[in-house]
Amino acid sequence: MPYQIIVCGGIAPDPLQTLEPAMGPAGPALKNEMMLPAVFDPWAAHALYEAAHLARQFPGSSIRVVTLAPKAKLQQVMMTVAQKLPFELIPIDGPGGGFTDAVEVSKVLAQAISAIPGIDMSQFLLFGGWESATRGSGCVIPMVAARLGIEDCFLAVDELKIEDGALVIKERVEGGLLQVSRCSAPPAALAWATGSLPEPPNHPQTGMANMRAMMPALQRAKPAGLTGEGFSVPQATLPAQQRQTQVVKDKPAAEISRELLEWIKG
């Protein structure tokens, strides 16, 4: 059976960038946010790779990516992501930072998905990252699921297998364990953790073909119209954690190891 997979995923600052909040009249933003290089949100990227993996196993499957992000930045990020697998991009132009409200974002995403013609709930899988690298709430996928009427939602998913049409899912739970659940059929929502698939290599033909449809979609992207009503972030600061580091040089390994042993046991 083919699947109609929708992956929700935003963009996040390239992981090694130094981040600093800056308060503005509309609340905090990242200092130099538009200057920071961005990547597709890491856990959402894993969701996308898993979607590609699933789609390969079930011919006729489709992948769409619904993204709320500033479209100029999104376009740049897509130049990397679009080379990895074929998908349709449904961009929504709006702020992509962490200080937006997960509740409102989930409404916008759910509306965008509801507007897609031809969705068949019996084939429908909602994918996304467990938590974004920006807001990190872990709320958006379950809320989008609920707004779309999906009752079966899985969080921190590391594995999906299809067995006789049923979805067998492993989720991370407490104590380093994985919970195994069997969902009889779609629709279902899966918010992915790391999964087990490597990043697919870039494929220029795929990228070029994807971009033919993506650029017009980006040019047409509608503004998200986030109002931020009823939500504010009055404070955002860098944590101040400075320690007095003792730097130990020129000590033999044997001595260091004795000191470490004492410390570990102490």
């Binding site: 789609a55 390969r56 011919p59 499957s61 998908f87 349709e88 033909q205 795929t206």
Partner: peptide, 19 residues
């Protein structure tokens, strides 16, 4: 919209032909 027609490339595999 189907991926096969729009992206011109089936999700089942990649195609390493010259571009």
């Amino acid at each position: 919209m189907s991926i096969e027609t729009e992206a011109g490339n089936d999700v089942n595999g990649v195609d390493a032909k010259p571009l």
